[in-house]
Amino acid sequence: MGSAAQDTAVHTGRVARTFIYLVLLLFALFYLLPFLVMLINSVKPLSEITSGNMLALPAVWTIEPWLSAWSTAQIGVEPTGLKPYFVNSLLMVVPAVAISTILGALNGYVLTKWRFRGDGILFGLMLFSCFIPFQIVLIPMARTLGILGMAGSTPGLVLVHVVYGLGFTTLFFRNYYAAFPTELVRAAMIDGAGFFKIFWRIMLPVSGPIMVVSIIWQFTNIWNDFLFGASFADLDSMPMTVALNNLVNSSTGVKEYNVHFAGAIIAALPTLVVYVVAGRYFVRGLMAGSVKG
């Protein structure tokens, strides 16, 4: 996506422009409001929420809900807060993202620079796997994880996320490498570099932009996943999203909305941070043709 400075041929009148700005600002409000309101209310005491105005700033500021959400709130039966689940998510996300990205890069490299008969069909099979409804694999996956002795464990979840993320990472790297001149690979072959040397010395050093796309995509998807976490994790490996849902939807006791909000923001924080730091690269890379098959 280019800069806003691009020369647009369309000219609009004053009334139209006012209308356009109005609509744009209204939508900005629409997108911001739920999150802002959540933020404001996460630093209010509970009494102010249940009796007061959700849009009002807190009369009494408190970080108590945040502390509670982090370390003492009741998740399921244990008053542990979200902290252990945050750690679970990290332990799951980091290896899953790393492995799926590396494999995706290698696959993309093979599928574009070392083509062989039938590679198009293989790619089609991988691509389709991105879009399957995961309900279709839940039952056999639960069985398989059991047989492999990985049921309810973080390595099991890593395996699941790697397998079902491969299609996307392969797609990203394949499209990126397809635009990379094949003559460079041939030159390197004549220079005496082999398969891995070419990958390591020629392809990887220019893969920065698509690495960012792949890492952000996988990180957000895996961090935000709920279905696999809810299906395959037990208490020791439960990821953040499942824990948050348990916190918010637990039927016992008073609903501590302010703690829920703090918890929700904590759960959203890592992906938001990644998005704020590297989002522009993500959108740019993604829009450079990678969303399409």
């Binding site: 900005a28 997108y31 959540m38 918010v248 929700a264 959203a268 938001l272 998005y275």
Partner: peptide
């Protein structure tokens, strides 16, 4: 970025807020 950021959130977070 204001229009785009909800994409970075988990549906669980979105659900909680809404």
């Amino acid at each position: 970025p204001i229009y785009l950021y909800p994409m970075a959130l988990s549906f669980i977070v979105t659900g909680t807020a809404w």
